[in-house]
């Protein structure tokens, strides 16, 4: 396994946790100190989308060349992506509870994210209800690609058409609202990369475990 991923992930996340808690942040109404949740909430969504993207990439590779190697990768990246999505949802609900007043606000982005999670939960139910390994891999790869392509308009386009309480939509200012002194960028970008690398690391570990299990199965069958 690539060692640099582990080192980079640890270093970046250590820096993010220390910097995110201690560095100065702009004082804004309502947000106040909760603005620090930005370093933990937003990277979860970035991570989720990137991990799902990798999952779809392996699903396409699987359809072109059906080997269980690609299937395992596709599933595990989706798995970690789903975990990131659930964490993003929880952190977002916590943050919303203190800034918007209620954990669930019916915000278009929140709904879009919930639907994205539903897609991948359905993906795992689909996998659970097919016995034949090869068919399971093929059908779930097809659903993965199809659902991802249908999900993109949901997460990226619809929130921009309607008014949202998230920044960057419905005429709200984008990120510029946060980084007036651009100090937050110094922590935010490393946070995105750090969390993403941590996700990849978890996925790589799980892939390794799955592949070893498969090898053991092969030995036992022989």
């Amino acid at each position: 396994m690539k060692t640099w991923i582990k080192i980079a992930a640890i270093a970046l996340l250590l820096y993010v946790h220390i910097g995110g808690m201690l560095f100065e942040v702009p004082r804004l109404n309502i947000l106040n100190e909760t603005i620090r949740a930005l370093y933990f909430h937003v990277p979860m969504w970035f991570g989720m989308v990137l991990l799902f993207l990798i999952s779809v990439y392996y699903a396409i590779l699987y359809l072109r060349n059906p080997t269980s190697k690609f299937d395992i990768r596709s599933v595990e990246y989706a798995n970690v992506g789903l975990t990131f999505g659930i964490l993003g949802m929880i952190t977002g609900m916590l943050w919303a509870n203190y800034t918007w007043g209620t954990p669930w606000h019916g915000d278009p982005k929140q709904n879009g994210a919930a639907i994205a999670l539903l897609v991948y939960l359905a993906y795992f139910i689909l996998r659970g209800s097919i016995q034949n390994e090869e068919q399971k891999a093929r059908l779930s790869a097809v659903y993965n690609i199809f659902a991802f392509a249908a999900m993109i308009p949901l997460i990226f386009i619809i929130p921009r058409l309607t008014s949202s309480m998230h920044p960057g939509s419905g005429g709200n200012p984008g990120f510029n609202m946060y980084d007036l002194d651009s100090k937050m960028r110094l922590v935010f970008y490393p946070a995105v990369i750090g969390w993403f690398l941590a996700g990849v690391w978890i996925a790589l570990l799980r892939i390794k475990v799955r592949e070893l299990e498969e090898q053991i199965m092969d030995f036992e069958n022989e």
């Binding site: 359905a122 689909l126 209800s129 097919i130 097809v142 659903y143 659902a147």
Partner: peptide, 27 residues
């Protein structure tokens, strides 16, 4: 149509038809 083709290969196809299609069709 596509999801019906996927669901037809599974054991509990009627439930899966609904579960698989709703999130995709919401957009």
């Amino acid at each position: 149509s596509l999801i019906s083709a996927i669901a037809s290969k599974t054991n509990n196809s009627n439930v899966l038809m609904a579960v698989l299609s709703f999130p995709v069709i919401i957009a």
